[in-house]
Nucleic acid binder design. Structure first.
Length: 287
DNA sequence: AGGATACCCTGACCGC
DNA sequence: TGCGGTCAGGGTATCC
């Protein structure tokens, strides 16, 4: 799944065609994704104009002209692509031979501009929901989210405050969406390596200086990843069908056994498992 | 409190 | 070419 940079890449691509457009028809090709679609979902969207397309953590937010907000999560394998009226096939996307449409195209937004925005999700861990209005409190999905790591308020002090007193491993704390919202397995690994901190460290043991370094590393790695169009491992694509390329800039993620890329470090990248997820790190320079 | 585990689901890959 | 096992960018529930 997409983590924050992949979702932001998708948002930037979709914004150009969705903002200001009217949803002429919403085509649901099955009754559910991870959860059933909300009652009357299609009817409540049809005819509405999309006034803005935002993002909170890993959620895409479409604000409608009647005040409602569509909340979309890509799960592990969700992607959006834009089809123009010509209906040209997207490179690299499997199209079902029967109707020319991929088996996993589940939701189609038919827009007034002539384009169709297609949501594809093989694993269906993604979902869509409707909130009555803007503001995190209006949705149970957003209400408990922590600080936005690319927002202005995120710095060493803000991070230190959230880690203080926590006894769980630093990696687990950073993956907790209630503390910092938007990080996932890849970017936690990358940010910890860049800041020289061990994923095994007790979260509450991080000092003010270390928190400042970590916050800066998080901000930098997310920014670089967004600029690269995200990371494409299996499923993520930009909305024009192109791959992201930040995966080539990984320093530790999926690099078990390779030499640590830190200057002057002679360590080897290790893999271990924390909370059921792979952790990649260098025991020599991450302390 | 927080850790470990199972689960939701499909597809890719590996070894046999 | 097939088959079983394992793994995957997320989030949630449930059990200790």
């Amino acid at each position: 799944m997409p983590e924050l940079p992949e979702v932001e890449t998708v948002r930037l691509g979709l914004r150009a065609v969705m903002e200001g457009a009217r949803i002429e028809a919403l085509e649901l090709r099955r009754p559910d994704l991870r959860f059933p679609f909300p009652e009357g979902f299609a009817a409540r969207l049809e005819g509405r104009r999309i006034e803005g397309l935002g993002r909170r953590a890993k959620y895409l937010l479409a604000d409608l002209d009647d005040g409602a907000r569509v909340i979309m999560h890509l799960g592990m394998s969700g992607s959006f692509r834009i089809e123009s009226a010509s209906g040209a096939a997207t490179p690299g996307v499997f199209h079902h031979p029967r109707d020319g449409r991929s088996l996993h195209d589940h939701v189609l937004f038919h827009l007034s501009g002539g384009q169709t925005v297609v949501y594809n999700d093989p694993r269906r861990f993604g979902f869509m929901d409707l909130a009555p209005g803007p503001g995190d409190a209006a949705s149970p999905h957003l209400a408990l989210l922590g600080i936005e790591p690319v927002g202005n308020a995120f710095d060493g002090a803000a991070l230190l405050e959230r880690l203080a007193g926590r006894r769980n491993p630093l990696k687990a704390a950073l993956l907790d969406q209630r503390l910092v919202a938007g990080l996932g397995n890849i970017y936690v690994a990358e940010a910890l390596h860049r800041s020289g901190l061990s994923p095994m460290r007790q979260a509450g043991s991080v000092t003010a200086a270390e928190a400042a370094r970590l916050a800066e590393a998080i901000r930098t790695v997310l920014g670089e990843a967004i600029a690269a169009g995200g990371s494409s491992l299996r499923d993520h694509r930009q909305t024009n069908g192109e791959l992201g390329y930040f995966q080539h800039a990984f320093r530790v993620y999926d690099r078990e056994g390779e030499p640590c890329p830190s200057p002057g470090c002679h360590g080897i990248i290790e893999r271990s498992v924390q909370a059921g997820r792979s952790t990649f790190w260098c025991a020599s320079c991450q302390i």
